[in-house]
């Protein structure tokens, strides 16, 4: 079972030192643009895996290691800081 990327707000904030759930990322696999808060989050004690809500490819992986965070972003083309995805 998964949650939303929004549930990873605390971890993302720690890693990127900014509120990230409203930032958007483009999936390397299917090119869909999603807010980080919109990604599918699979998490546990060790860290989180964020997947694309469209093609479910792994976009971002954050693992907690003894000396800090290990962040893998192979699945993302770019991340852009955006305002809330509220009204358009």
């Amino acid at each position: 079972m998964n949650l939303d990327g929004n549930a990873a707000a605390g971890v993302l904030r720690e890693v990127f030192t900014e509120e990230m759930t409203t930032s958007e990322c483009r999936c390397e696999s299917c090119h869909r643009l999603s807010a980080l808060g919109q990604l599918l989050m699979y998490g546990g004690a060790m860290g989180v895996v964020l997947r694309c809500p469209s093609c479910t490819a792994i976009v971002l992986r954050v693992t907690s290691a003894r000396r800090g965070w290990f962040v893998e972003m192979r699945g993302v083309i770019h991340v852009t800081q955006a305002g809330p995805v509220a009204d358009s």
Binding site: M1, N2, L3, D4, N6, A7, G37, Q38, M41, Y42, G43, G44, A45, M46, V85
Partner: peptide, 16 residues
């Protein structure tokens, strides 16, 4: 779909 925001809660896949 882009106007539907979701927030799920509950147990996740890993140890918790």
């Amino acid at each position: 779909p882009e106007r539907v925001k979701t927030e799920r809660f509950g147990a996740t896949g890993g140890a918790s």
